[in-house]
Amino acid sequence: MIGQIALVMVQAALVLLFSPLIAGFGKTLKARLQTRRGPALLQPYRDLYKLLRKGMVIPETASWIFPATPYVLFAATLLAGLLIPTISAQAPLSWIGGVLAVVYLLALGRFFLALGGLDAGSPFGGLGSSREMTISAIAEPALMLAVFTVALGAGSTNLSTMAQAAVGQSWRFLAPSQMLAFAALFIVLIAETGRIPVDNPATHLELTMTHEAMILEYSGPYLALIEWSAWMKQMILMTLLMNVFFPYGLSAGGSAGAMLFSVILFVAKLAILALAVVLVETLNAKLRLFRVPELLAVAFVLSALALISTFLFGGRG
């Protein structure tokens, strides 16, 4: 019991403390690829500290939904982070909810965030909420179908079981169903974390914003919580993608050396994925909003193909 609680605390600390670093790494990397100097690697931490210490302006039209939203979003996202395997295949709380719970906890946070966007009554909030709910809705079938494909191969929707099932099979990611599902989930990752070509996290031009428009009215500590949640969500989805498809170094406990090796591999995996995301961001222009469904349709077709190849090449294909 004590060990359990300790593990939960460790994972919570990992998700809380490591997620801003990934965001910072992404930003720095993107700036370098675009031959800019970019912000410092640790800038997200400074931003958080700064925002937490700032005062805030609450729109006078807002109700209790507005201040409640950051808490719900933060708690739901952090809880989702406790359900996923990070450096060990055994996630501390994976037994209270599998991949479906992760997806739906993120959806709970998004539900409230969209309500928070509408609460202030400014047109930007509504615009952002509408777009965010639309994009996430049409990303959902691709996400679920790809997740199902992997779950069918592993025989469980429990993430720890899914990761453990993958541990023994080093070259499994070369199976067509796995590669197709990975490609589909990669597109979903781009869409869900609001990256180019779906959404531009750096823009503040009203008409092109999605996520940024929704949270336009938030400031100070509330904004800190929302930004932090967004970074955690990015880390959760990236970790999910890497650990389910490339479960290298997911030692189930073991010696200190093995642990260190797992941590290094974990960081390396996320860095590689971040590099891939940044490359996509740098090499593409943002799509028009109504071209996004086509991209997500591609993701859905990819996951459907993944499913069919599971069917053709057997359950573990």
Partner: peptide
């Protein structure tokens, strides 16, 4: 296909 969830604990 096994999976577990606990709404109460969530």
């Amino acid at each position: 296909v096994r999976g577990t969830v606990s709404t109460l604990l969530l």
